[in-house]
Design a protein around this nucleic acid. Structure first.
Lengths: 257, 257
DNA sequence: CCCAATTTGTTCGTATGTATC
DNA sequence: AGATACATACGAACAAATTGG
């Protein structure tokens, strides 16, 4: 039987990478948490017996991963930093830049995750949270008068889903819903911007969401699941009708819906 | 109405970060693909009018993100590189290091993704692929005699799911299934290693998988979905019974099941 | 407001390592 | 083996940013 975990042959790491890994393990071993300061640059130079440039490159590697942040001046230094959702989104987005995703690929995921999210939140939201959702919905109460407006409403709709995800207790579910919504917001383009907006379809989208909030308020998980399942199916159909496609691009950090 | 996409105030980037972003955009604009060589270090120094150290730090940032790789020697240089699944997994794992995930969090995702995967693959697999799945199943044909063996079988079971995911056409689904399986393989520890293995439960796990392969071969999507849904519910219950917990840790690149 | 101390950030010259021919 | 072309590493000096007096 093969070993439980196949650890790839460690291709020779450059020294900065080694140092970065060493620091990472060191942080973990010491149980350092975000906000804690790492030894100073000079200190690291002495400890590792390496040149300043090498140490600095190591720091930059950790910084690129979102694990540390550095500040200049007295009281400055390199600090452990909690990887932000933005950073994680950008880094994962880089991976998918090279995998040609289709709209349907993304919707295959959303079609199962969103209903699950809705079901898990039914009856668990405060009145304030439910109000926040209704607030976002007002952004597209009026029917779109152009394809451009329609697209903006689509983005608002995605924001609704991102907000809903924010309310989940499950960090993984939260991230995945928001990640997929961000992907769609960032990299979809409609090929039919000249076309007339299809009011019937998007207004039914609004209808879905208000029914959803009702179900969430009533604590009806089955209904919430069902409503969102239909909503997803519908949204996917609309994207298809508009011949929407995904544009390949790197996601710069800082984009968030 | 707020802007469609809120772009966070661009907190002042250090020069290496700016250079890294500039190179990234440059690569995209030129449509460079994995394997293409970036200008030499000296060339970049001249172009950006910056010192070697700064340029090198920028390269390291891109390297940490998995976007480039550099080789020394003649014909060497910095090359565009497709972000590997391992790298993406490690980087995303860093994010979840700071979000305390529970077993149930991971299973909430698996419970909906795995059945969807199974359904989408029904009737689409070649006989060779189906054989490969049956091959992995043989690893735990024999009942576990200890908690340790039981854990090894659990890992094998995860490998089965990872292999199944590999067969999906959907890169996002593929990644997510494999990511969650990797999370469980890497960071679960059983708190009841002293306990007797529960043969009944795991052998039923094997039963599920052989029924699944049959359904896949028969092209019965509904059955495949149903079988995996039950399998997931059962596996989650087992993890609960064993009081399995997640240990928080950074995932070094190179771990893969 | 300025000055001094502290810490990271940047530059340049030089030397070393490595792979190709 | 030797020459070449490239990244890699080192060290010392200098610059910029931040804090506190």
């Amino acid at each position: 039987m093969p070993p439980a975990i196949i650890r790839a042959i460690p291709e020779r790491l450059s020294r900065p990478q080694q140092v970065a890994e060493a620091i990472k393990s060191w942080v973990m071993a010491n149980g350092w948490v975000p906000g804690d300061r790492l030894p100073s640059e000079q200190d690291l130079i002495d400890r590792f017996g390496m040149a300043k440039g090498t140490i600095r490159e190591a720091i930059r590697i950790l910084e690129a991963q979102g694990l540390v942040k550095s500040r200049t001046g007295p009281g400055g230094g390199v600090f452990v930093h909690q990887v932000s959702e933005e950073r994680a989104t950008a880094l994962l987005g880089n991976y998918f830049y090279f995998q040609h995703l289709t709209i349907d690929d993304v919707y295959q995921i959303r079609t199962v995750l969103e209903p699950e999210l809705a079901a898990s939140l039914a009856g668990k939201l405060s009145e304030a949270q439910l109000h926040a959702l209704e607030e976002v919905m007002t952004c597209y109460a009026a029917p779109a008068r152009s394809a451009q407006e329609e697209r903006e409403q689509h983005i608002s709709s995605l924001r609704f889903h991102a907000l809903l995800a924010e309310m989940s207790e499950n960090p993984l579910l939260r991230f995945l819903i928001r990640f997929t919504a961000n992907m769609l917001a960032d990299i979809t383009v409609s090929r039919k911007l000249y076309a007339q907006p299809n009011q019937e379809l998007w207004s039914s989208g609004l209808d879905y969401q208000s029914r959803l909030v009702s179900a969430l308020r009533a604590g009806d998980a089955a209904a919430a699941r069902q409503i969102l399942a239909e909503h997803m199916k519908n949204a996917q159909r609309l994207m298809r009708m508009q011949e929407t496609v995904l544009t390949q691009r790197f996601l710069p950090e800082g984009t968030i819906i």
